[in-house]
Design a protein around this nucleic acid. Sequence first.
DNA 1: GTATTATTGTACCATCCGGTATTTAATTGG
DNA 2: CCAATTAAATACCGGATGGTACAATAATAC
Lengths: 203, 203
Amino acid sequence: MSLERIKAARGRPKTLDRDHVLEVAMDAYWKEDIGNLSLNEICRRCDVSKPGLYREFLNEDGLMKAVIIKYQKEVLNPVLEMLNSEAPFRETLNNLVSFATSVADTKDAPRGCLLIKMRESRMHLGEATRAQIDFIQEQALSAYRAWLERSQAKGEFNADMSSEFAATYIDAQLSHAASQLARGENQLIVKKMLLVAFSMLVE
Amino acid sequence: MSLERIKAARGRPKTLDRDHVLEVAMDAYWKEDIGNLSLNEICRRCDVSKPGLYREFLNEDGLMKAVIIKYQKEVLNPVLEMLNSEAPFRETLNNLVSFATSVADTKDAPRGCLLIKMRESRMHLGEATRAQIDFIQEQALSAYRAWLERSQAKGEFNADMSSEFAATYIDAQLSHAASQLARGENQLIVKKMLLVAFSMLVE
DNA sequence: GTATTATTGTACCATCCGGTATTTAATTGG
DNA sequence: CCAATTAAATACCGGATGGTACAATAATAC
């Protein structure tokens, strides 16, 4: 029995495709200049009226927050999963580097990391989006830290620095690589720089 | 004899203070979000009418180019001068780090580097400004390179990488530090990270 | 004093922005 | 068939933007 069909709602049927809007918006924020991307433009691109968008997401802040949450689920969480692997420290670190500097071969694929882009243009974001970004950031930092401490315990990571500082350093370098890619810099050079920056972590 | 007085120009005497406008604009672009700083706002702040500003600088692009040139003269060139010193490699590198992470103790002093800020918000800039930024960037990279090659010749720098790559790496790390400072991150942590990132260059 | 030259600021232009009031359309419940 | 409900899109709001037309002003040249 039960919710095969959800009771056939009351009023005029909804035609707005929430997921489609989020896909278009995520792609746009990821590839283009966040501060110069208007709600109007997004409405145009996914053929949705402005009041429709406001009904669904409340306001621009709401849309952006929904976008970053989608990004978190689809892109960031899989990365953080890598940190739970029992693979050797070196290997996981290399995986991180490879992942961060990988670029889909499609010509107009997004480059860099949407989270980092948003963090960099913090001033253009609303309250809710900012809060969500800070939350994700904290989450990531503690994931790095836990991974580093596990590696320390296994004797695979023993650089002369606190796990907290190392987590900050790794996050900073990966973020920097992401912005370089977003700015269009050469993928191989960026990767080489990351490896140099991490070289003292692996003896 | 001669140009004690410059011939007392013909028409209505100019009252617009070009230098004052440039000071105000440089300060503003340096401290605030470039993409959200309108010409109107700058006019308001230095009490100049909009047509006056357009007459002096042609357009927004012209103003920004004038600002970055002023910044180059007053801030960047002195840094590049450091690279001509005959001091040991380590010492000059440390000077670079200290300079990059120094923050005036005044509460509302600008943080980070205007050049890097502009490079990061490239999309908000006009043609002329972009060209000037690329020019400065090339200049800086070859200054780093020359310095590295001189240090190599003196046997003070011998990391296993080309001087070109090392120059790119150093520039990237210093730039990253500048954006972190601009974003308000802790000055001491940023400095510590820079030192770690450069640790493999000095043995 | 009058023409010439150059700089000034007011007041305006079209365009876009985020956000909303309002009317119209599509459906269910009775 | 008629109310109730929900979502739709048009058309608008005030305000900001980059940029300009234009008349007023202040000086020199003659």
